[in-house]
């Protein structure tokens, strides 16, 4: 049984800076392709901050993108299979363990996929793509075998 729900509105800031400058914001920087509870690694020198950003000591870019995304949560044992309907990555524990985070695709929508816990998957999707993604995911979940 896989549960799909929408996340409450997000507060997020896109941070781009050299790692040593980013570190001055007071958050532990996540390793590449992972996320901490409040910071998602999106690329080299690029992170998404989920709480209030501090003031960087050095050149950095901080842009409020709170309304850029809508967040979805998939919960349950079959979630990885459901995600693999549209996401071509290997989502098994060995390849995508909990705390993994990446930019990828689901169907024809670009998403950020974050696995905070073994059975919990979070998706951030561009606001205008959310209706497409939700409709597609709902159809996928309808076709998952029960149990």
């Amino acid at each position: 049984m896989v549960e799909l729900r929408e996340m409450p509105p997000l507060r997020c800031t896109l941070l781009q800076a050299a790692a040593e400058v980013a570190a001055t914001l007071g958050h532990a920087l996540p390793a590449p392709l992972t996320a901490t509870g409040t910071m998602l690694w999106l690329g080299p020198e690029e992170w998404l901050l989920l709480d209030e950003p501090g003031v960087p000591q050095g050149p950095a870019s901080l842009v409020d993108v709170s309304d850029r995304y809508r967040g979805l949560v998939l919960h349950g044992a079959g979630a990885a299979e459901a995600l693999n309907e549209g996401c071509p990555l290997d989502l098994a524990d060995a390849a995508f363990p909990p705390s993994s985070c990446t930019r990828t695709l689901f169907g024809k929508a670009e998403i950020i996929l974050w696995r905070p816990a073994a059975n919990e998957w979070r998706i951030l999707v561009g606001r205008s793509f959310a209706p497409y993604l939700l409709a597609l995911l709902r159809e996928v979940l309808d076709d998952l075998p029960p149990g």
Binding site: G107, A109, S128, P131, L136
Partner: peptide, 15 residues
């Protein structure tokens, strides 16, 4: 696959 009808391509809608 599921890419047909309304899901053929994302339909992006403004706010």
């Amino acid at each position: 696959g599921r890419h047909r009808g309304l899901l053929f391509d994302p339909i992006r809608s403004a706010p």
